[in-house]
Simulated assay, not measured.
Amino acid sequence: MISKGRRTLRSLAVALAAAASFTIGVPGGNAFAIDHVQCVGGENFLKIWSHLDGRQSVDCYANAGKTGFGGWWVDRISTGNNDLIYYDANGDSVKIERWHDITFPNYPPKVVSIQIL
Rank of each mutant, 00 (worst) to 15 (best):
2 I>P: 11
3 S>N: 04
3 S>P: 00
3 S>F: 05
8 T>W: 04
9 L>D: 06
10 R>W: 01
10 R>G: 13
11 S>H: 10
11 S>I: 07
12 L>V: 15
14 V>A: 11
14 V>S: 09
18 A>Q: 06
19 A>K: 04
20 A>S: 15
20 A>K: 05
24 I>V: 12
24 I>Q: 04
25 G>M: 06
26 V>C: 14
27 P>M: 13
27 P>F: 06
28 G>L: 15
29 G>W: 07
30 N>E: 14
30 N>T: 08
31 A>H: 10
33 A>N: 14
34 I>C: 05
35 D>Q: 15
37 V>W: 06
37 V>M: 04
39 C>G: 00
40 V>E: 03
41 G>L: 10
41 G>E: 13
41 G>M: 09
42 G>E: 00
43 E>D: 11
43 E>V: 10
44 N>Y: 09
44 N>E: 14
46 L>A: 08
46 L>S: 02
46 L>F: 05
46 L>Y: 03
48 I>A: 02
48 I>W: 05
48 I>G: 02
49 W>M: 11
50 S>Q: 13
50 S>T: 05
50 S>W: 07
50 S>E: 07
50 S>H: 10
50 S>R: 04
51 H>S: 14
51 H>F: 07
52 L>C: 03
53 D>E: 12
55 R>F: 11
57 S>V: 03
58 V>H: 12
58 V>W: 03
58 V>D: 14
59 D>L: 12
59 D>V: 14
60 C>T: 04
60 C>D: 06
62 A>E: 08
62 A>Q: 10
62 A>K: 13
63 N>I: 03
63 N>V: 12
64 A>I: 00
65 G>H: 07
65 G>C: 03
66 K>P: 03
66 K>H: 05
67 T>D: 13
67 T>R: 03
69 F>H: 11
69 F>Y: 09
69 F>R: 00
70 G>Y: 06
71 G>T: 03
72 W>F: 04
73 W>R: 09
74 V>R: 01
74 V>Q: 02
75 D>F: 03
75 D>I: 02
77 I>P: 00
77 I>C: 08
78 S>V: 08
78 S>H: 09
78 S>A: 13
78 S>G: 12
80 G>N: 00
80 G>T: 02
83 D>Y: 00
83 D>Q: 01
83 D>A: 11
84 L>K: 01
84 L>V: 02
86 Y>H: 09
86 Y>K: 05
87 Y>G: 10
87 Y>H: 14
87 Y>L: 02
89 A>W: 09
90 N>G: 12
90 N>V: 03
90 N>S: 12
90 N>A: 09
93 S>F: 05
94 V>F: 09
95 K>A: 15
96 I>S: 04
96 I>M: 11
96 I>G: 01
97 E>H: 08
99 W>F: 13
100 H>I: 11
102 I>C: 02
105 P>T: 03
105 P>D: 01
106 N>K: 05
107 Y>A: 13
107 Y>K: 09
108 P>E: 01
108 P>V: 04
110 K>Y: 12
112 V>E: 15
113 S>A: 15
113 S>Q: 14
114 I>W: 00
115 Q>I: 08
115 Q>T: 04
116 I>A: 02
116 I>W: 00
116 I>V: 07
116 I>Q: 01
117 L>W: 07
117 L>D: 06
117 L>E: 10
